[in-house]
Amino acid sequence: MPKPKDEFDGLYPCDFYTAEELFEPGEMYTVYEIGRLLQGLDPESELEPDTEAVLLDWAIPWVVANSEDLVVGNPVAEDQPGYYGLKREDDRRD
Rank of each mutant, 00 (worst) to 15 (best):
K3P: 06
K3T: 15
K5N: 14
D6E: 12
L11G: 14
L11F: 01
Y12T: 12
Y12I: 09
Y12D: 08
P13M: 06
P13L: 12
P13V: 01
C14Q: 13
C14E: 13
C14S: 14
D15P: 04
D15Q: 12
F16R: 15
T18Q: 05
E20F: 02
E20C: 03
E21R: 13
E21K: 14
L22W: 10
L22N: 13
F23V: 15
M28G: 09
M28Y: 12
Y29W: 11
T30Y: 11
V31P: 11
E33L: 07
R36S: 11
L37T: 00
L38I: 00
L38F: 01
G40T: 04
L41E: 08
L41F: 11
P43G: 01
S45N: 04
S45G: 03
E48C: 00
D50H: 06
T51K: 11
E52H: 00
E52A: 08
V54T: 09
V54G: 06
V54L: 10
V54R: 11
V54W: 10
D57H: 04
D57M: 08
A59I: 02
A59W: 00
P61Y: 04
V63I: 07
A65Q: 04
A65D: 06
N66Q: 06
S67I: 01
L70S: 07
V72T: 01
V72L: 11
V72S: 11
P75H: 02
V76L: 13
E78A: 07
D79N: 06
D79V: 00
P81V: 04
G82R: 01
Y83W: 05
Y83A: 01
G85E: 02
L86N: 05
L86A: 02
R88E: 15
E89C: 07
D90L: 02
R92C: 08
R92Y: 12
R93W: 08
